[in-house]
């Protein structure tokens, strides 16, 4: 079943006086099946962040469409966008984006609180999520009291606690050391095995090699993609690495 369908997505930025036009996305088309784990790679300026912002309904495209589980994002009313995001999407950001006034527990529960869930339901959901992410014993600490890896795992718990249809991750390992990064990637894999659809934007070949499929974006279009097939993580790592080298060479060749 297709959970996310992106068709011919375009985004053009116009400078304030209408002079220069920057084409950040020139027609991106791809789709994500339910239960898939997709990584998107690309160099800085390739349009990754623009794409993610549009998928997250934080930005509006100039052309094309995004359909999430049969719902066209363009048809969601402005007033309902916040609750739409809350109910259907989960986010993990590079800089964690945890609130320093809340304990980890409260940070994780925040989306449920905003969704008006009952306290008993919150606690029911919190326990297993914290357990599987290995942060059960630091739940009552504050973000500044725990390590980066624990913060990011708390952020991941916050992202999945609402059982979103799609988990969007923007450079989730960007602020982490390699140890915490691989821990987080294991967590993502585990969540994916549990049925969570994940779309992750990353720079890191290592992170991307945990995915089922890797999309490469360059100059605002999908340039290439690699399926895992039967590859192990190491084999996929090599494939991705080769593809990146080719991508760069191709760039130089033009």
């Amino acid at each position: 079943m297709t959970i996310l369908d992106v068709k011919d997505l375009k985004k053009t930025y116009t400078s304030r006086f209408g002079g220069n036009q920057v084409h950040a996305l020139k027609g991106v088309t791809f789709s994500v099946e339910a239960g898939e784990y997709v990584a998107i790679m690309g160099e800085s300026g390739s349009g990754k962040t623009t794409l993610l912002n549009i998928l997250a309904a934080l930005d509006k495209p100039t052309g094309g469409s995004v359909t999430l589980d049969g719902m066209n994002l363009a048809e969601v009313k402005d007033g309902a966008l916040a609750s739409f995001r809350r109910e259907n999407l989960g986010f993990v950001f590079q800089e964690f984006n945890l609130l320093d006034t809340f304990s980890l527990k409260d940070n994780i529960l925040l989306p449920l609180v905003l969704g008006g869930k009952s306290v008993s339901e919150m606690e029911e959901r919190l326990g297993p999520a914290a357990q599987s992410l290995g942060i059960a014993d630091v739940l009552n600490k504050y973000p500044y009291e725990v390590s980066g890896g624990q913060k990011q795992r708390a952020a991941a718990a916050r992202a999945v606690i609402t059982n979103p249809k799609l988990l969007l991750a923007d450079e989730p390992t960007g602020s982490l050391d390699s140890q915490s990064s691989s821990e987080l990637m294991r967590v993502f894999e585990k969540m994916n095995r549990g049925g969570q659809t994940i779309l992750m934007v990353t720079h890191s070949t290592d992170a991307a090699s945990h995915a089922n499929r890797v999309l490469f974006i360059r100059d605002g279009v999908v340039f290439h993609q690699i399926y895992r097939g039967d590859c192990s993580n190491e084999q996929l790592y090599r494939k991705v690495s080769d593809a990146l080298t080719m991508l760069r060479r191709g760039g130089e060749g033009q």
Partner: peptide, 15 residues
């Protein structure tokens, strides 16, 4: 910063 985070994770401007 705090409110930007809240808006990102699904708090509406009204809230």
């Amino acid at each position: 910063g705090r409110y930007q985070i809240m808006e990102k994770i699904g708090m509406s401007q009204k809230e």
